[in-house]
Amino acid sequence: MMDSPTSVVEAAFRHYRSQDRDAALPLYADDFTFTSPRDDHIDKAAFFERCFPTADRFKEQRLLHVTPVDRELVLVYYEYELMTGDRYRNVEAITVREGLIREVQVFFGGGV
């Protein structure tokens, strides 16, 4: 049985925070793309090289809402605290199809 899009997304966040690259890799499609204000449609290899190893910047990250929008789209609203003590909130729109994360679009929020 295939995992729900919400459970796939929650697992991806857990693996990111624990920096378990081996567990995270199979959750992402080969044609995965990642977009944020700092990255424009980078591929899976670039994401795992540039973005995935950044969890050590965070003192804490809390998922405030993980909301399925339809069969494939999950919105994640989260808050994080940097090691500097600064706190922020972001939203991610994550497309999950056939049990794999196909696309992540990150929308940076402001300080809390």
Rank of each mutant, 00 (worst) to 15 (best):
M1H: 10
M1G: 14
D3T: 07
S4M: 03
S7Q: 14
V8M: 03
V8R: 01
V8W: 01
V9D: 01
E10Y: 07
E10A: 11
E10G: 07
A11E: 10
A11M: 10
A12L: 01
A12W: 04
A12C: 05
A12I: 00
F13S: 00
R14P: 01
H15G: 01
Y16H: 08
Y16N: 00
R17V: 11
S18W: 04
Q19W: 07
D20R: 09
D20I: 02
D20Y: 05
D22W: 08
D22V: 12
D22G: 12
A23S: 13
A24Y: 03
A24H: 02
P26R: 04
L27K: 01
L27M: 01
Y28K: 00
Y28T: 00
Y28G: 00
D30I: 03
D30Q: 11
D30N: 10
D31I: 04
F32M: 05
F32I: 02
F32V: 01
F32H: 02
T33I: 14
T33W: 00
F34S: 00
P37G: 03
P37V: 06
R38A: 12
R38G: 12
R38P: 00
D39T: 08
D40G: 00
D40E: 14
H41E: 14
I42R: 02
I42S: 08
I42H: 03
D43E: 08
D43A: 07
K44N: 04
A45Q: 14
F47W: 13
F47N: 05
F47A: 02
F48Y: 09
E49P: 00
R50V: 09
C51T: 10
F52C: 07
T54C: 10
A55S: 15
A55E: 05
A55L: 04
A55M: 07
D56N: 12
R57M: 14
R57H: 13
K59G: 05
K59Y: 08
K59V: 11
E60D: 13
E60S: 15
E60G: 01
R62M: 12
L64G: 00
H65E: 12
H65P: 07
H65A: 10
V66W: 04
V66P: 00
T67Q: 14
T67K: 10
R71M: 11
R71P: 01
V74D: 02
L75Q: 13
V76Y: 02
Y78M: 06
E79G: 12
Y80H: 13
Y80A: 09
M83D: 11
M83V: 15
T84G: 06
D86K: 15
Y88K: 09
Y88Q: 04
R89K: 14
N90Q: 05
N90K: 03
V91L: 13
E92Q: 14
I94M: 07
T95F: 03
V96T: 04
V96Y: 00
V96I: 06
R97I: 11
R97K: 15
E98D: 15
G99S: 05
G99D: 03
L100E: 14
I101N: 02
I101A: 06
R102N: 08
R102D: 11
E103G: 03
E103K: 15
E103C: 09
V104D: 05
V104W: 08
Q105Y: 09
Q105E: 11
Q105R: 15
V106E: 10
F107S: 05
G109I: 08
G109V: 09
G110I: 07
G110E: 14
V112I: 13
